[in-house]
Design a protein around this nucleic acid. Structure first.
Lengths: 131, 131
DNA sequence: ACTATATACGACAAATATAATCGTATATAA
DNA sequence: TTATATACGATTATATTTGTCGTATATAGT
């Protein structure tokens, strides 16, 4: 429990690699080969980051991805949300339609835990965790 | 991702219920019926809590569970660990045997995120999140 | 002593979520 | 025109989580 997904792991690896190679365009194949990450899943992950302007994409041969300045100031909360949607330790935090709502006696503790985690991730940027 | 398990959810429900009924012994069936939780899984969850003295168990008919004083001072980290083992956003944090260790470029960020979460959970007790 | 009912606990099966793959479309440098 | 890159939806495979089954042990009540 409380695990991050492979998508997030791959995204972290990719942006770190892009930041270390800011002078060149890096293709999905490059990163895939360097770290042993399945190509297609990495491609889709980078597409999500591109549509949020965390990275910039260039099509065609000699194309690839580039880090943007937005990376450093992006919070973990935003980063996770781009890839996986809203962060919540239980689905009922954002969804509704709980069967036991009437008898639920853990709403307060669940909300407190959630708020604490979201507060933590809102105050940590990708730059903060880099070094 | 970053979800808690049903076991943790059920455990939270159970200890809250026990705290609200400290004067009587409450059986698994009582809690199961009150909140619509599968009996066997709830039973095993309470057994784990009992073996860590978070609750106390009494066998035989008229038996059941009782809250202990230890509940309030228990940290979320200990609580989660009793039920699910060590808290880590990636398995490699506690396990070893990673294939890509040589090319891993996210060790620092992963450790920072992990340490932040563990620090958060070590400083939050079950009493803290109750109200 | 017997019976009913509670906890204790390991093994297995079902359901769900995650990870990976496949197929096709589009853009563009050479 | 061709080769190679990103873009993206649909499907399959895998892993994890959740729930069930079966059996043992303890004990209050009769």
């Amino acid at each position: 429990m409380l695990k991050i997904t492979k998508r997030v792991e791959y995204a972290l690896i990719a942006i770190r690699h892009l930041q270390e190679n800011q002078d060149v365009l890096v293709s999905v194949s490059d990163i895939s080969a360097a770290y042993g990450i399945p190509k297609e899943i990495l491609a889709k992950t980078l597409q999500k980051l591109a549509s949020s302007n965390i990275v910039k994409s260039y099509k065609g041969p000699t194309g690839g991805y580039k880090a943007t300045k937005k990376i450093a100031e992006t919070t973990l909360n935003d980063f996770f949300e781009i890839l996986e949607g809203p962060t919540a330790i239980m689905d009922c935090y954002f969804q509704d339609g709980c069967d036991h709502l009437n008898s639920c006696n853990i709403r307060t503790p669940i909300n407190k835990i959630n708020d604490s985690i979201r507060n933590l991730f809102n105050n940590l940027t990708l730059a903060d965790i880099a070094q």
